[in-house]
Simulated scan of single mutants.
Amino acid sequence: MLHPVGDLPAGVYWRRRALVLGIAASVLGGGGWLVGTAGSSAEAGTRVASSSTEVQPSLAAPALEQVVPSLAAVQTPSVTEPSAEPAPASSPEQAPPAVEAPAAAPDPGQPCTDDMVSVDVAPAGGQAAVGDKPTFTLVVTNVSGVPCTRTTDAGLREIVLLDAAGARVWGSNDCFPEVSSESRTLAPGEAASFPLQWGGRTSEPTCTAPRTAPPAGSYALQGRLGTKTGPATPFTLT
């Protein structure tokens, strides 16, 4: 081993042996380094695991008094006691407006006064021939805004015929007065009609004067109900 044998000079063989030994030493050194590195890594992993295990106790849940604040530290809002002094009386300007009570419903049985009704005569066509017997109609209308009741007895209803000078020519109650007892309840704007036929001759309240047919000309018809007298309505005899 220490004395090389061969045809080459001895220096050549020594150099080869030195090269082989160097390579072997490198291989051995590299293997030792790998083993050391692996050991260091394992040791480092063990240290990390140990450190993690040691840290766990420090992550324990904090004590209850550290999470929930002390009740003494919480400020409870104070409740202001109501003042015992009476509130000042409101001035008249601040008082609410008074509410008017609704008007009472009208009594349908209240009487119709003269101001609450109108009395008119509707002549048949506005004219008639001398000697004819036309029918006139007495119309009583409630001109108020409430219902009311009016006595309409036949003895209170009358139609008169007046000449152009305003003299009385005929009256429906002169010779043949009618008697009845009746009344009408009229709603606002409602009218009651009472037809009456004229005999075509003159008359007067005592019905003692001769009765004749009035001549042709211009006349007027006027209606009455008790104390209420209506306006004159033109009428012509031909």
Rank of each mutant, 00 (worst) to 15 (best):
Q222T: 00
S144V: 00
D132H: 01
S172G: 03
T202F: 14
T137P: 09
G166M: 05
P210I: 02
D174Q: 13
V160Y: 00
G230N: 05
A164E: 12
A129F: 03
G226K: 07
T185S: 14
P134G: 04
P215R: 13
A191I: 14
D163N: 15
N142V: 09
A165Q: 09
S183N: 07
F136V: 01
S183H: 02
T141N: 08
S181F: 11
A220Q: 08
S183P: 02
E178H: 02
A165T: 09
T152P: 04
V140W: 06
R150F: 03
E182P: 01
A129T: 07
G217Q: 15
G199I: 10
A129Y: 06
L186G: 13
R157G: 08
L161E: 05
A209W: 05
G217H: 15
V140I: 10
S193E: 15
T208I: 11
Q222N: 01
L162I: 07
S218N: 15
A216D: 12
A165V: 06
T151M: 05
R211V: 00
D132T: 03
T152L: 07
T208K: 12
A165R: 07
R211W: 00
A129D: 07
L161I: 11
G145V: 04
L225Q: 10
A216P: 13
A213T: 12
L162Q: 12
A187P: 10
G199Y: 11
A191W: 14
A220V: 03
P210R: 09
W198D: 13
T227F: 06
P177D: 06
T208P: 07
V140L: 13
L225S: 02
T212K: 13
S183R: 07
T206F: 02
L138E: 09
A191D: 15
A191E: 15
R224P: 03
I159Y: 00
G189W: 11
T149C: 11
T135M: 03
A213N: 10
E182G: 04
E204C: 01
T151R: 10
A154H: 05
G230L: 07
L225G: 00
S183I: 02
A129C: 03
T229L: 08
T149A: 12
L221M: 00
C207S: 01
P147S: 13
L196G: 10
P177I: 06
N173A: 10
S183L: 03
K228W: 02
G226D: 06
T202W: 14
C175K: 04
E178L: 08
N173W: 04
P210V: 06
T202P: 10
L138C: 11
T229E: 04
V169H: 14
A164F: 06
T152F: 04
R201I: 12
A167D: 15
T152D: 06
F194E: 01
S180R: 05
G200Q: 10
N173G: 06
P134D: 02
V179R: 11
G226E: 04
S181Y: 10
S180M: 01
T227W: 03
E158H: 03
C175R: 05
W198Q: 13
L196P: 11
L186T: 14
R150I: 13
R211E: 00
A129K: 11
N142Q: 09
V143M: 06
E204Q: 08
G226V: 07
S203E: 06
E158D: 02
T151Q: 08
A191K: 15
A216N: 11
A165Y: 08
V143I: 13
